[in-house]
Nucleic acid binder design. Structure first.
Lengths: 183, 183
DNA sequence: ATAATTATCTATCGATCACTAGAAAAATTT
DNA sequence: AAATTTTTCTAGTGATCGATAGATAATTAT
């Protein structure tokens, strides 16, 4: 996971992986099938351990605004955690790949769309509860906060600090067009 | 440029490039030196023709707010222009590469830092002119709008429409903490 | 303890990677 | 028109790519 996270799908070779894991290619292929299968498995593992956990923890917050704040603050911390590679493993992964790796590109893009839809769902709830005006376009607002997360990931990769990203998060939250009540 | 833009540095092979340009590898190497040299030249060409032009046109706007609006609207249009690959060629390029290609990663990251600093400079001017409160952190605000551009690029690659990105731009502009006067 | 199974190894596959020597062709100069 | 220079080609370099056949070692089952 560390290697794919740091160097991407195409930037990580089987030789890199087997050297890091301490065994030889046949073992890797017996265990995971192919490089592509392994990457898919790693992505699912990442989602389970990091992204999905972050989203689920955020969704426990009592208001849509608090959900966003929790998620963005957690992202700022996680994206700059020195114990993991910088940025998010899915938010800015597999953006450009060779033609033969388009299945990977589409897979990761599909996961990003799911992240987007998770935001949309929570924002729709916020509209029915009155936290957001009914005139608000949930999809547009979700696009905005998703873009922020993706931009934060790029900047983390470029070396931004936790505080840099927290400031970005705060500015994004200042654009919130609904109530900021906590209950 | 189209190939590197669409498939990235590692996703584009010399064979891809020579096939697209209609000649053979020795011609490419005589003309450009190496794949890395060619990529650097392509990036500079892109900056000249697209990114720098967009920034310079934006900076002709009469207020900092108008500069940002112009730049973000132009980005929304350009990132989804069907005549070019989706997204920005530098905003979301070379984020993950193999160890041997780290010079490329650093080069592109350096260019993104220059984009950031261009925003910082204009925001500092806005503080002296009173468009922005003197208490505003120019660097943080620049990080925010740069993140928006990078996020818009990711979403364009994922298939977002011009209108999707314009909505993101409008929400980002709604976070502007200064005067929105046009003069 | 022996047999069957599983896991991992060495060694290598053909394909492709970025790149280049030397010949042939095209353009330019005299 | 002949000589020179420049350009592009054919054909290939060694290295590395993802992936695998067959042998060996370790484990599990009987």
């Amino acid at each position: 996971m560390d290697l794919f996270w740091r160097h991407g799908y195409e930037g990580t070779s089987i030789a890199d992986l087997t050297a890091a894991m301490g065994f030889t290619p046949p073992t890797l292929y017996a265990a995971f099938g192919s490089k592509e299968d392994l990457y898919r498995e790693v992505i699912q593992f990442f989602l389970l351990r990091s992204e999905r956990r972050r989203m689920e923890a955020a969704l426990e917050q009592p208001s849509a605004y608090a959900v966003l704040r929790f998620y963005l603050y957690a992202a700022a911390e996680n994206f700059t955690d020195p114990q993991t590679p910088a940025g998010c493993m899915v938010a800015t992964a597999a953006l450009q790949c060779a033609t033969e790796n388009q299945p990977i590109v589409q897979e990761v893009a599909r996961i990003r769309q799911q992240m987007l839809l998770a935001f949309v769902e929570r924002l729709d709830v916020a509209k029915t509860s009155g936290e957001l005006p009914a005139t608000i376009d949930s999809l547009a607002l979700a696009h905005f906060y998703t873009a922020i997360v993706q931009g934060m990931s790029v900047q983390a990769i470029d070396g931004a600090s936790t505080n840099d990203l927290l400031a970005v998060a705060d500015l994004a939250l200042s654009a919130w067009p609904g109530t900021k009540d906590e209950g």
